[in-house]
């Protein structure tokens, strides 16, 4: 009971903080100037029609590498905790297939999710979205069939290989920029034509690696969580 009101108290305090921020700061007039400079410059120097992608991969690529390593650490920790089976707290659910609606819906959704996931990843430098969002959609696409049919599970070894390969491609692309006397993870191959599928240099390669890595990590994380209680 106490924790509930504690949560509400926290929410009220947070609302008060936001209220103070809103009243003290004029709306729509941020004190920073970097945003406008990036908006002016990104389309011509990086060549990505989606400015967010230009910022995420070109201007702060090493931050993205940090995000990837945090995800990797989290997925590794979950694998460490859940990988050693037979210590489940609850009674295990039997490995029965899901209901008819789940199985039929998954059969229908799997190719669509695959298509949407890869579309979001490959068009990350043109339209909203990118490796992280598309990778999550890919993870959902590969977890849903296992939820519907728990006996046909995916191999963790294969997913670890995909993850490692994608991470290696990301870092090697970043190191490749060093060979051309550029900064680590700087986009190579020039900006290209704005809005074309093959533009923005190496950014699509980087985002494809990010998408595969995020998808494999999250899929194996969710599978560990879902299959462990089925094992007990």
């Amino acid at each position: 009971m106490l924790t509930r009101y504690g949560t509400l108290l926290f929410a009220a305090g947070f609302a008060f903080l936001l209220f103070v921020l809103f009243t003290s700061q004029p709306l729509g007039a941020p004190p920073m100037l970097a945003g406008q400079a990036l908006l002016d410059e990104a389309a011509t120097t990086v060549g990505a029609a989606n400015i967010v992608t230009a910022v995420v991969l070109a201007y702060r690529g090493i931050d993205t590498l940090g995000e990837l390593s945090i995800l990797f650490a989290a997925a590794t920790a979950v694998g460490l905790v859940l990988g050693s089976a037979h210590r489940t707290l609850g009674a295990g659910a039997p490995r029965e297939p899901g209901g008819f609606i789940l199985r039929a819906g998954v059969d229908f959704l799997f190719p669509l999710l695959l298509l949407v996931g890869f579309y979001i990843i490959v068009h990350g430098h043109l339209t909203p979205g990118g490796g992280f969002q598309g990778g999550v959609v890919l993870a959902a696409a590969f977890v849903l069939p296992v939820l519907a049919r728990p006996t046909e599970t995916l191999s963790h070894k294969a997913m670890a290989r995909v993850e490692g390969l994608a991470g290696g491609v990301f870092i090697l692309t970043g190191l490749g920029a060093l060979a051309f006397d550029r900064a680590f993870l700087a986009p190579l191959l020039g900006p290209g034509q704005l809005g074309a599928l093959l533009s923005a240099g190496t950014l699509p390669v980087l985002y494809l690696a990010v998408g595969l890595k995020v998808g494999a990590e999250l899929a194996s994380l969710l599978l560990r969580l879902s299959e462990d209680e089925a094992d007990a």
Binding site: T88, G90, V136, A139, L225, D228
Partner: peptide
């Protein structure tokens, strides 16, 4: 939408199931 509404809900539900709740 992808993480919060999709995987987040799934993660919470699976965690609750794993804890036997």
């Amino acid at each position: 939408a992808a993480i919060g509404a999709g995987l987040g809900g799934l993660l919470l539900a699976l965690a609750a199931r794993r804890l036997g709740l």
